[in-house]
Design a protein around this nucleic acid. Structure first.
Lengths: 141, 141, 141, 141
DNA sequence: GTGGTCTAGACCACT
DNA sequence: GTGGTCTAGACCACC
């Protein structure tokens, strides 16, 4: 199965971290249900044209956080996780993302009212953009 | 003049980048009006107990983005920037921070309604925290 | 691959700038096509017997002008640039060099006719000199 | 007398050098004939709003090259220079400016034919620009 | 191996 | 005093 993962060499974020967070999102959002087999580190590496070291690091980190499980000779699988824990992780990810953004806004002297307005603006912009992309069909390749 | 800049050695964010973004915030928020002389790279370095090279890199990057101007033998100054451009930069910084957060939320399968609710939650949390800190007097530890 | 770069310690021009402009010339002239891996900052530093910091600064400035791309852990590469943009940059470099010279000539009260004549003189002198050097074999000392 | 000297803080060229070369141009071009009194270092400094140290350095360098002469208690004057020497200096300045430009052009792989064409282009551009400026009256202040 | 950050000095050029 | 350049190391993160 081909994972919907996109990495960018341009980004300052390390490759392994891009993979890691995207996989995490897929898991806690339920898009990859427990038991789902993940591609082998070699397969994923070739798909993303990166080094196996990189994919292995991503898998290792996820395994360390008990989100996936590697079974010798069989492969790597999404681990059984309590629904509640998934919900919590999800919410925590979102809130901390928002907190970071709010902090940034506060630093440049934005008021709460402004933030609310700009947040709605960002929301609209994001989903508009998303819809347009899907309407246009595949915009990539 | 002493700048309200705080750096953390713990953070994974490079020192020079911490300085850079904080200075940028001070400038676009208008807290440092055009023409304001910034502390010399040496003074700032000793104040933050870091190397001159580090402060210099921060200043240099800001100069590259036309926010400050350094003159050999004279010092470094906040550049004259149109008020409009400052507003734009500010707003752009905030919206892009929010966009990033929204993208993250979307990736884990959050709905717009959920995002709004969690955003308000983050907002409250942030400002509550801020008020408590300032009430307590010591904002450190 | 060994780059045809020569630096002079005598020159008042900063080392990193000598490297920078020579690399730029090699890139916009097409001698280093897009994708070409540049020597690592350490390799180049040892080749030119200068500090790593110096080569890094040159690379960094070129990256800032979108001529090269550096990727953590992989190396530094000539960026994909439109042929047109390369042509433009090249021509712009030349014209601005000539403009500067013409301005200088005008300031000392030279007429257009004089300038044309002296320009041709300079042209001859330059290429004569160049040919003699290459004929002689040793172009140093 | 007010000298037609313009300095720019933005330029990477040192202030004292900007003053020095502009004065030199005025002298060898004959716009400041021998015996002309120059403004005092203090007057010039205040006119250009720079430090007296800066203007003194410019005057000292010119005196070192025997283009001006300072007489204690009387002031600074353009020195008597042989017409021939002025001509030579002038020509030398121009040719070396052109040589530098040609070298730059050669480095980016320009042919002699191209250079000639681009030189003419630069010439036209420069004088067009100059005429337009003077037609428009004072474009400054 | 690669680049990224940082230190603690140094010397020079400019104002 | 200021900034500009540079050295010769160091340690870390990434591939």
């Amino acid at each position: 199965m081909k994972l919907p993962i996109r990495v960018s060499e341009e980004s300052r974020e390390p490759l392994y971290h891009q993979i890691e967070t995207q996989l995490q999102s897929l898991i806690v959002s339920g898009k990859l249900p427990p038991g789902t087999p993940l591609p082998s580190i070699r397969a994923l590496a070739s798909e993303l044209s990166c080094s196996v070291i990189t994919t292995r690091k991503a898998y290792q980190n996820l395994e360390g956080r008990a989100l996936i499980k590697t079974i010798q000779g069989k492969g790597t699988f999404v681990k059984e996780v309590e629904k509640q824990r998934k919900e919590d992780t999800k919410q925590q990810l979102i809130v901390s993302a928002f907190l970071k953004a709010v902090e940034q806004a506060d630093q440049v002297g934005s008021t709460q009212a402004e933030m609310k307005s700009l947040f709605n603006q960002a929301l609209l912009q994001y989903f508009d953009n998303k819809i347009n992309k899907s309407k246009g069909g595949k915009e990539d390749e």
